[in-house]
Write a protein that binds this DNA or RNA. Structure first.
Length: 255
DNA sequence: ATGGCCTGCAACGCAGGA
């Protein structure tokens, strides 16, 4: 089973890139973030014609998540139970015995912002719910835009980013707490090139200069991690005209 | 030069992203 996550930064704009990428990559399931579409505007037909079932939870202008799958999606649920939130950032569904959880973690804006406090509270709530989900679903994958660069090697310029949002101690602690629940970073299960990133600013020719961050992740429960055969960041869509600022992350799991 | 770009909304600049 090949699973992927991709922050598309507007599904309306990126639909052609997504459809091309699905045709080439043929993933079994894809989690999307920042669809920026209300549910009535979701391109269901185009995605079904590409051979995928789809579940989505969107809103106007901001956020929005979706799960595309070649198999049937069951037990679909949106949001974090018990955590009231207008922002559409979480979608879970099961496919072929695997629990897929798609997350768009709040950005946080800056460490002195109210949005940063919301980010940390949101992550607390996510972990609380994940404890229950993991107990119910031992084969679980948490895929998405975490808006956290977990380690200095995930940052092009660690000194410049030190203690800044996406790299701050409390955010990295949150990521480590997720690992402490038994989840494993699929990307770091394998040897990887240095300076591997999943996001590059649109400004400053950052992609060409590889001035990026690794903030999009696939975390796997121990059962899935044991069966994971590879994980990579696919930078090819980032090279296209009018790209998303994020690249897809892909993991392959045996059987 | 601590900014540059992109998206959506509904305006002709703003919020938000990261």
């Amino acid at each position: 089973m090949k699973i992927a996550t991709w922050n598309v930064n507007s599904l309306k704009v990126r639909l052609p890139h997504l459809l091309d990428w699905l045709a080439v990559e043929q993933p079994d399931a894809v989690c999307l973030q920042e669809t920026k579409l209300t549910d009535d505007a979701f391109p269901v037909t185009e995605i079904q014609q590409a051979g995928y079932q789809v579940a989505f939870s969107g809103q106007k202008t901001y956020n929005g998540v979706a799960i595309l799958a070649k198999g049937s999606l069951t037990e679909v649920s949106a949001g974090i139970p018990g955590f009231a939130d207008e922002q559409k950032r979480v979608l879970a569904a099961s496919m072929d015995g695997v629990r897929l959880i798609c997350v768009y973690v709040p950005n946080g804006q800056s460490v002195d912002s109210d949005k940063y406090l919301y980010k940390l509270a949101w992550l607390d709530a996510l972990r609380g719910w994940l404890t229950e989900e993991l107990a119910r679903h031992p084969r679980l994958a948490l895929l998405g835009d975490y808006n956290i660069a977990p380690d200095d090697r995930d940052v092009h310029d660690p000194a410049a980013w030190a203690d800044q949002v996406l790299c701050s101690g409390p955010e990295r602690d949150q990521f480590r707490d997720l690992l402490g629940m038994g989840l494993q970073d699929a990307f770091r299960l394998f040897e990887q090139p240095e300076k591997s990133f999943s996001w590059w600013d649109y400004r400053m020719a950052a992609f060409r200069r590889n001035l990026g961050l690794r903030i999009d992740h696939i975390l796997l429960s121990s059962e899935l991690a044991a069966d994971c055969k590879n994980c990579r960041i696919d930078t090819s869509p980032r090279k296209l005209e009018r790209p998303s600022d994020h690249a897809p992350v892909v993991a392959e799991i045996q059987s």
